[in-house]
């Protein structure tokens, strides 16, 4: 069994209205050092796979087919064997 952690954010080229609003809220709280906020999504997926390579193929396929919308989002993932 493998555990995948997927982080999804809007592409750099896509304006993030949620992130901007959070940034403004941070500024109004006095966090003047906050300069940029991007809001994203987080998935934890447990994958039944025989080895690291096949788990990696599966999580990529899941991201590409459902978890993210490639028109506006991009993702990174971290994959570890479950203990």
């Amino acid at each position: 069994m493998y555990n995948a952690v997927v982080n999804v954010t809007l592409k750099k080229s896509v304006l993030d209205p949620q992130g901007q609003t959070v940034l403004h809220a941070l500024e109004s709280l006095g966090f003047k050092d906050a300069k940029k906020v991007r809001v994203g999504k987080y998935f934890e997926v447990a994958i039944d796979a025989k080895d690291h390579k096949s788990a990696e193929d599966r999580i990529k396929a899941m991201c590409d087919q459902l978890l993210i919308n490639p028109v506006i989002e991009e993702y990174t993932y971290d994959l570890k064997e479950a203990r």
């Binding site: 809007l10 896509v14 304006l15 993030d16 209205p17 949620q18 609003t21 919308n69 028109v71 506006i72």
Partner: peptide
């Protein structure tokens, strides 16, 4: 083609 984002006002 394309995609939807949250309204600019949220």
């Amino acid at each position: 083609p394309g995609a939807m984002l949250r309204n600019k006002t949220l």
